[in-house]
Design a protein around this nucleic acid. Structure first.
Length: 507
RNA sequence: GGCGGCGUAGCUCAGCUGGUUAGAGCACGGCACUCAUAAUGCCGGGGUCAGCGGUUCAAGUCCGCUCGCCGCUACCA
């Protein structure tokens, strides 16, 4: 079964910050896990480049929209290198293939009678070139003003509509028969109550700006951003060519989204697809926001965290670990430097890194650097070895529920246990009293470390790769399945070196 | 206003369908160890489970009320 995972396409009106990195990272870890389990994966990310805001930002920058988006989109493409993402594709909504896919989907919806021409009405600020909701407005001397201070007027603009109002019951039935479609559960409940309150038809075109996909057969209109943006998920797989090689990945297994865009993915998107007689995605997960040292991330505070600087200071893998370990996926969390340092020093370096280092040093010094022979487990060894048998299954189950923090907690509980085991077994003392037993203990610890490193690869690909190097595990023996096959005895292990460098707790 | 959720050790949180002395990590104190990145292990102190009132043989765990906090309540990505 092929696995298709997506991030949202990021709006190029913003620079990449920790929030973008977070979404992509969560997607990446799951993609890597599935590959490690031997499954075929397509991992897509990209940029959303249409809309009035982009058009305006380009004009302000004195550039053509295409040149502007070419430039800004690159910053998001660079996130792949910065965060160590393993995405298979990168899509831009300004690509010709995407225009073609949007127009094909539009025609398909139109042919089936789901689109009609009407008029969009609302409070419009000419100065901002934007519509505002009635609750956003303030009134003074009989004139209504937008939050920006610009006066607004009631305008009517011709617009095509999607008959979303006809899909309420079908969506509710879909949620009912697909209880895992929306996660976490609290969000699912919100979506359901929203749909139950009744859906209106959705305006899906605009005549007030040009920077978008033209509506087929009516050049006065461009598609409203969400129909355009959501379609990216099928464009990337070759739509409308359902014979395309990648089309077998549809429907998506999981769309990762921020909680702000859940509605579009959990309501509009399945409605569009069902109306087009295409299968809706399997699951949408809405994750939370990061605050920065207890404060909301905001443009005015200028406190957004630049992933590049973060990785420069702490290293990529500690950052990856921290973001998924610190906060339950789906909840809001706080990004505090002290918390990151604590995780890095106290868990990665002290608990895991040090266990690897002490074990490998003992092998290096007392076993001539050769992998000790596999030995049967004594009763006392089962405390170390038995939990390993179920680690892959339990981590897999947690990851498939996007419970990253619990998956990491499970692994680290075992790593702590291994530190207890080595302390009690004291191979440094066995060296003098029972050298044969010492080698058995070291081999058991090696087995445990190999398991931890293998399972942790999706979270910390670089560092766990180094650990597997130090453990003498060849490249072709790093999959989850390969754990069933012990390494041959006597293999030469390279001299160990520390995996994680600690940082000072003060900035 | 309506709907939904939360309030448990100094901090961040677990506690499923109610049942022995309420748990984890971090922080703090003591002891042990010395292989290791001054790392690790063990033990310990610390909680009116927001408050009040109910149901029950038994409630952090169910019900009601009060106080405090948060989310959703459509076309803005």
């Amino acid at each position: 079964m092929p696995i298709y995972l997506t991030t949202p396409i990021y709006y190029v009106n913003d620079k990449p910050h920790i929030g973008h990195a977070y979404t992509s990272l969560a997607t990446d870890v799951l993609a890597r896990w599935h590959r490690l389990a031997g499954r075929e994966v397509y991992f897509l990310t990209g940029t959303d480049e249409h809309g009035q805001k982009v058009e305006k930002a380009a004009m302000d920058a004195g550039e053509e929209p295409q040149a502007f988006t070419d430039r800004v989109s690159q910053a998001f493409r660079d996130l792949t290198g910065t965060m160590g993402l393993s995405n298979d594709g990168f899509i831009r909504t300004t690509e010709p293939r995407h225009r073609a896919a949007c127009q094909a989907l539009w025609l398909r919806l139109q042919e089936r009678g789901h689109i009609y021409l009407g008029a969009y009405e609302g409070w419009y600020a000419v100065r901002d070139e934007a519509f505002y909701g009635p609750d956003e407005l303030t009134e003074k001397d009989g004139v209504k003003y937008a939050p920006s201070g610009a006066p607004v007027e009631w305008v009517r603009e011709p617009s095509y509509f999607f008959k979303l109002s006809e899909w309420g019951d079908k969506l509710l039935e879909f949620y009912e028969t697909h209880p895992d479609f929306i996660a976490p559960a609290s969000r699912r409940n919100e979506v359901i109550s929203f749909v139950k309150s009744g859906l209106s038809d959705l305006s899906i075109s605009r005549t007030s700006f040009k920077w978008g996909v033209p509506v087929p057969g009516d050049d006065a209109h461009v598609m409203y951003v969400w129909l355009d943006a959501l379609t990216n998920y099928i464009t990337a797989l070759g739509y409308p060519d359902e014979k395309a090689d990648l089309w077998r990945f549809w429907p998506a297994d999981l769309h990762f989204v921020g909680k702000d865009i859940l509605r579009f993915h959990a309501i509009y998107w399945p409605a569009f697809l069902m109306a087009a007689e295409l299968p809706p995605p399997e699951r949408v997960f809405a994750h939370g926001w990061w605050t920065i040292e207890g404060q909301k991330m905001s443009k005015s505070l200028g406190n957004a965290i630049d992933p590049v600087k973060l990785v420069e200071e702490f290293g990529l893998d500690p950052v990856r670990y921290f973001l998924l370990r610190e906060v339950p996926f789906g909840q809001d969390g706080d990004f505090a430097r002290a918390a990151l340092v604590n995780r890095l020093n106290g868990e990665l370096a002290d608990v895991l890194g040090n266990l690897a280092n002490r074990t490998l040093s003992l092998i290096q010094r007392n076993c001539e650097g050769l992998l000790p022979a596999l030995a049967p487990a004594a009763d006392i060894d089962t405390t170390l070895l038995q939990p390993l048998d179920t680690l892959v299954a339990s981590v897999g189950k947690l990851l498939e529920a996007q419970e990253y923090h619990l998956a990491l907690e499970e692994v680290f509980r075992q790593v702590r246990g291994a530190n207890g085991y080595i302390t009690v077994q004291a191979p440094w003392a066995l060296k003098k009293t029972d050298p044969a037993r010492m080698t058995e203990v070291l081999r058991h610890l090696h087995t445990a470390l190999r398991t931890y490193a293998t399972v942790l690869q999706p979270f910390m690909p670089t560092t766990m790769g180094q650990l597997l190097d130090q453990l003498g595990v060849p490249e072709d023996a790093r999959s989850l399945d390969s754990l069933a096959t012990p390494l041959p005895d006597g293999r030469a292990l390279p001299p160990p070196s520390p995996l994680f460098r600690k940082v000072e707790s003060a900035a």
